[in-house]
Amino acid sequence: MRVARAQKVIGMPITAQEMSDVFARLALPAARDGDAFVVTPPSHRFDLEIEEDLIEEVARVHGFENIPAHPPQARAVTHSPAESTRSLHELRERLAACDYQETINYAFVEPDWEADFAGEQNPIRLLNPIASQLSVMRSTLMGSLVANLRYNHARKLSRIRVFEIGRSYRRDAQAPDGELTVAGVAQPMRVAAAAFGPALEEQWGVATRAVDFYDVKADVEALFFPRCPRFEAALHPALHPGRSARVMLDGAAVGWLGELHPRWQQKYELPQAVALFELEASALMQAPLPRLSQPSRFPMVVRDIALLVDARVSAQQLLDAAEAEKPDLVRDLQVFDLYQGSSLPKGRKSLAFRVVMQHTERTLTDAEADAARDALVALWGRVFAASLRT
């Protein structure tokens, strides 16, 4: 037994003479060999086999109560989170408020899931998977959620709403190596959810209907609030080609939203449409600070406008043009109706807008409200060749 080693393990400077006295009290033959003791345990002390056993004997006889307790000391630093950021826990609370249940899934999945839901033919493969089918790292959370839906539907659940917050994995030559990162592999945190079955629990107040694209779109908008994401029609390998959208925030793509592709719905034995979304958690965690504004004491004036426009012009294009050049009196502008039918000219559609106008210092007159409405109609007519529907 080395003296220095015993002092380090015990945590106090017990002298070599005190250690020798301990061995003498225990009737253990011990001889000094430089800075160590050579101890020959008697045959009945079969518990003394290694150096640590002798160190334990020294500490026991010396008295555990005599060993001083030195609590660890560290500089306490208070970290206050920025007011403009949300935590992942807050995102979980928002999703729970939207009636979703949280799931936790493996980050390694079946290769077919990557091919079906991410279009990934060469995913990151595991050298020693825990099961032969779970052999690749996921680049999307959609496959795991579809598996959750399939599992629960097989157990006779008719309404299923699940979400997951977890990491996805994809190759990225720019990803650095670090304590929690691997060179060449990006590991972004993502938020995904899937809804299946009726939009609401069965009740007397509302007729039963299946959940659809717009139900989940409302949940996405609730997650981002008070920021306003944009939705652009786009194709995704996991989603229905006519019911999918790329989610945009400040001009950058931050996720996807849509209904599951009918091909995968049939393959994974789901009898109804599945609405789902997947978003970058970093985009959801950013939130602007609240700004105070004094509400006007004067009444609002509302005007509805029904336009005939080219069928290829989106409502968002009209809203963007109005936002850039709208009169100062206009406080809000919303789309509330879309009509396409044989009664309209070929290649045209009807979009109806609700315009809310208000002055902060006085009551608006009908002439002022009509002038603001006419200014919007003239703007849309100039930019999109739109005309009032009569």
Rank of each mutant, 00 (worst) to 15 (best):
N66L: 15
A315V: 01
P176N: 04
R161C: 13
M137D: 06
S135V: 05
I10S: 06
A386G: 12
E361V: 11
E49W: 04
S144E: 05
E280F: 00
R45Q: 07
A315D: 13
R2Y: 01
A372K: 06
E323V: 03
F23V: 03
R312F: 03
P71V: 10
R45S: 02
E361H: 12
M189R: 09
F336A: 06
Q334I: 08
D53P: 10
T390R: 14
V182L: 14
A31P: 00
A30S: 11
H153S: 14
L279K: 01
F353Q: 04
H236I: 02
L180D: 05
P327K: 03
E259M: 12
A218K: 06
A375E: 02
F213Y: 14
L388M: 09
S168V: 15
L157T: 13
P198T: 10
G184H: 06
A199R: 14
E57N: 02
H359G: 03
Q265A: 13
P42T: 10
R291T: 08
L289H: 04
Y169H: 07
Q73V: 11
A385L: 10
S293W: 05
P72N: 06
A27D: 14
R263F: 05
L26N: 11
L260N: 01
P129M: 08
M142C: 09
N122A: 13
G143Q: 04
H240L: 04
L338I: 15
A238N: 04
A6L: 01
A107T: 13
A59P: 14
A194I: 05
A24K: 15
N105L: 07
P262N: 10
D310F: 02
L91M: 15
Q133Y: 12
G347K: 06
Y151M: 11
A322L: 09
F37S: 01
H70Q: 13
P71S: 10
L200V: 03
E49M: 09
P29G: 13
L338D: 09
D33R: 12
E93I: 10
R161K: 14
D337P: 04
E278P: 05
M142A: 12
L95P: 05
A24L: 15
L157D: 10
Q340D: 08
L157G: 09
L134F: 13
T363N: 07
E56T: 11
I124P: 10
V77T: 14
A183D: 12
Y214P: 00
E278H: 03
L388A: 09
G242C: 03
T365N: 04
R86A: 01
Q187L: 08
L388S: 10
A69Y: 15
F224D: 00
F224S: 00
N66D: 15
V313A: 08
P327G: 02
V22R: 03
P71C: 08
R291L: 07
M137C: 10
E323N: 15
A352R: 10
R209G: 01
A321W: 09
D212M: 06
F23Q: 01
